[in-house]
Design a protein around this nucleic acid. Structure first.
Length: 336
DNA sequence: TTTCGGTCCTGAAAGC
DNA sequence: TGCTTTCAGGACCGAA
């Protein structure tokens, strides 16, 4: 289940092979993997994300995507949170973009910084670099043939079993202080590995909200890149109950959430990300090792590595939360 | 403005 | 053995 560390591993793995490569051909094998893609001249959201695509809409998106991407030159891939994008050929007058330079702008800002190939891996999305004659992987939805000046011809396959992910061509919108970000990712907050992430604003924001800490960590408008796995791990490390209201956290506790979030991300990155049931692999199809380092997520009924008490698994908005009721006490009274 | 629940989707596992 | 149900999850949308 790709969250920030997994997407960053993919981004870093793609960079050497795609930066400077030219797109030779594109084949959309399943238009449902283009849920975020809007053909030129069409209103965003028509038959949009989260809704079933009609056959006609699917064909229209597929042909537009194939036509516009073919022949383009790819730049270095960038990322914010779980969104990753590859800017297409330098638009005239645009500045170089770095991940740390990307900043949120209001949706709807006029696109003036070119176009990018945007990717969101959803739950089971994979971007796989393959030799042009390699055997097919399962669930390949979109196939791209590229030619790199040093590495020659390669295949870049987007595979996605559960179709929660998608590719799209999206307009880049300028950001302050430098750079640009795809419009579809402009509304989300910076991620905690971003050098421009505002720790003070994050702490203030979560302390002003009455909803549970886990919901706040999963809110991509407050901090991006956190999913169910790393939310549970962050809360366990910080000894915060998933349902502890943000307003019940002291300044120090709220800041410690951020500290532990960065800690768990750093460790996951070092171990190549978290892989379950082959739902996440790097660009070479290899699994990460961080699943072995999980303390809470997926360990319902097992002993807490810290206190030995049983890890509890409870329903949480259609999924599950894992925490240690002994280490992560629920606040008994509102903070005053 | 904030919060909640439904929707999209596939395949493994469990239950009957 | 074969069928049905449940579960996993991120992002988005509409309703309250």
């Amino acid at each position: 289940m790709p969250e920030l560390p997994e997407v960053e591993v993919v981004r870093a793995g793609l960079a050497p092979a795609v930066t400077g490569a030219r797109v030779l051909a594109v084949e959309v094998m399943d238009p449902r993997a283009l849920k975020r893609h809007t053909p030129l001249g069409e209103q965003p959201g028509l038959g949009g994300h989260g809704r079933t695509l009609s056959a006609e809409t699917g064909r229209s998106r597929a042909s537009d995507f194939e036509r516009r991407l073919t022949g383009q030159t790819l730049q270095a891939p960038l990322r914010r949170g779980k969104f990753m994008w590859i800017p297409l050929a330098d638009p005239p007058g645009s500045a170089p973009v770095s991940p740390g330079a990307a900043a949120s702008l209001a949706p709807g800002t006029a696109p003036t910084a070119g176009t990018a190939l945007l990717a969101h891996l959803g739950m089971s999305g994979q971007l796989l670099l393959r030799a042009t004659d390699a055997a097919d992987d399962r669930h390949v939805r979109i196939r791209t043939w590229i030619e790199h000046p040093e590495h020659g011809e390669l295949r870049l396959d987007f595979a996605d079993q559960r179709l929660f992910g998608s590719l799209a061509l999206d307009a880049l919108t300028p950001t302050a202080p430098l750079g640009a970000i795809p419009q579809q990712a402009a509304h989300i907050a910076r991620d905690p590995l971003d050098e421009h992430f505002d720790d003070g604003a994050f702490v203030a924001a979560i302390r002003s909200r009455g909803v549970g800490a886990k919901k706040l960590l999963l809110d991509q408008r407050l901090v991006s890149g956190v999913g169910n796995i790393y939310a549970d791990e962050t809360l366990w490390r910080a000894r915060v109950h998933p349902e502890a209201p943000g307003s019940s956290l002291t300044q120090r506790r709220a800041a410690s959430l951020l500290h532990h979030m960065r800690e768990v991300f750093a460790q996951a990155l070092a171990e190549g990300g978290t892989s379950f049931d082959e739902q996440y692999v790097n660009v070479n199809g290899q699994a990460g090792y961080f699943a072995h380092s999980l303390n809470a997520y997926g360990r319902g009924g097992e002993a807490c590595p810290r206190c030995g008490g049983p890890i509890k698994r409870v329903p949480f908005g259609g999924r599950s939360s894992h925490f240690c009721p002994r280490c992560q006490r629920r606040p008994s009274a509102p903070n005053t």
